[in-house]
């Protein structure tokens, strides 16, 4: 039996890596992937709590988080495609205008 604190530590490490990726990288696709990494870490924490309490609501929340991630990926990647088409760059530092 692995103690729940191990799972939570793993979740914290993954979340931290996601934060680092989000703040340091400049490729906008990698930024999106860092967000996914953080969401995944949160899901892990949800499942751990759900297991420990014997309560399924945590798993239902994970389901919703995945749905939100899907919606975010669909819209976000469409925006990235538009950016790449119109500005020929994926560098977040060069996407700094409010209009084309």
């Amino acid at each position: 039996m692995v103690s729940p604190s191990y799972y939570l530590t793993l979740s914290a490490i993954l979340f931290g890596l996601g934060v680092i990726g989000f703040l340091f990288k400049r490729n906008i696709i990698t930024l999106f992937m860092s967000i996914e990494l953080m969401l995944n870490a949160v899901n892990l924490a949800f499942v751990t709590f759900s297991r420990q309490w014997g309560e399924l609501s945590g798993q239902v929340y994970v389901f919703f988080v995945i749905i939100v991630a899907a919606a975010e990926a669909a819209v976000g990647l469409a925006i990235i495609l538009l950016l790449a088409r119109n500005r020929q760059t994926l560098n977040v530092e060069r996407i700094n205008l409010l209009k084309l």
Binding site: K25, R26, N27
Partner: peptide, 21 residues
Amino acid sequence: LFVFVVMLVDLDVALRQVQFN
């Protein structure tokens, strides 16, 4: 979807050289 978009927009060689902002 991610893999798809990465393959579709294969530009910014400079991004691979300087990766931190």
